[in-house]
Amino acid sequence: MATATAAFTTSELMVVAGARELHDGELAFVGLGIPQVAAALAQRTHAPGLVVLNEIGLADPRPIEFGVGNADPRHWYGASFMGSFSDVMGYLLARGLVDVGFLGALEVDAFGNANATEVRREDGSTRRFGGGGGSNDIASLARSTVVIVRHERRKLVERLEHLTNPGSLDGAGARTRAGLPGDGTRSVLTDKCVFGVDPSSGRLVVRSVHPGITADELRASTGFPIDLAPDLPTTAPPTREELELIREVIDPDRRYTRSF
């Protein structure tokens, strides 16, 4: 593992894998941290026309430093448009114009549904987090969603404590029957692998494994059964150019890319 990952951190690999999920000309909501760094990298490489939206009510910011959240004016700097929640979550997202939402989650299930609300403590009581905000709107109404989550058994679960953000619901076709537009979760990015979605079942399938991660490790840290093809590809590592951009331009303080 040491030799395979010596040249880059797991979070740098995740940034690069995340950036490859974002395409030129797309409208995207991206969460704080790795998704945001991934969007910045995509904009500086293959997707100069990627437009980032902020649910607080603005579009296409060009931040020159990281802030603490959507409400931090550091993340508003350079925007081409400022308006209201309705402007971005309504007239763009509900209208069906948003290509992808790149969101974090407390838990993800085998159908790519996500919990952004609460988890169960070991004593059985509920631990409430701040709430999903606009993440249900994004997962419901964007054309597709990419979810990022730490790869642990307690986070990749058979059954969510709260289905806040719909992926494939309970299988292929379920979103359409429920009345939801869009495809739902199209990939789940973790610190061990990248999941895609099997269109015939709506279930997550491992698309690539990060360097140095074994099949046993992957099974042991996933709370739902996974099929692993014998010839699974390794997640493509960062190029020298991508690493330079991450380290020297986008995240020089290594705020999100030091380790995961």
Binding site: A94, S140, L141, L163, T164, P166, R175, G179
Partner: peptide, 10 residues
């Protein structure tokens, strides 16, 4: 009317 929240626990 809205399409958000369909199919969710919300």
């Amino acid at each position: 009317p809205i399409r958000s929240m369909l199919g969710s626990d919300l």
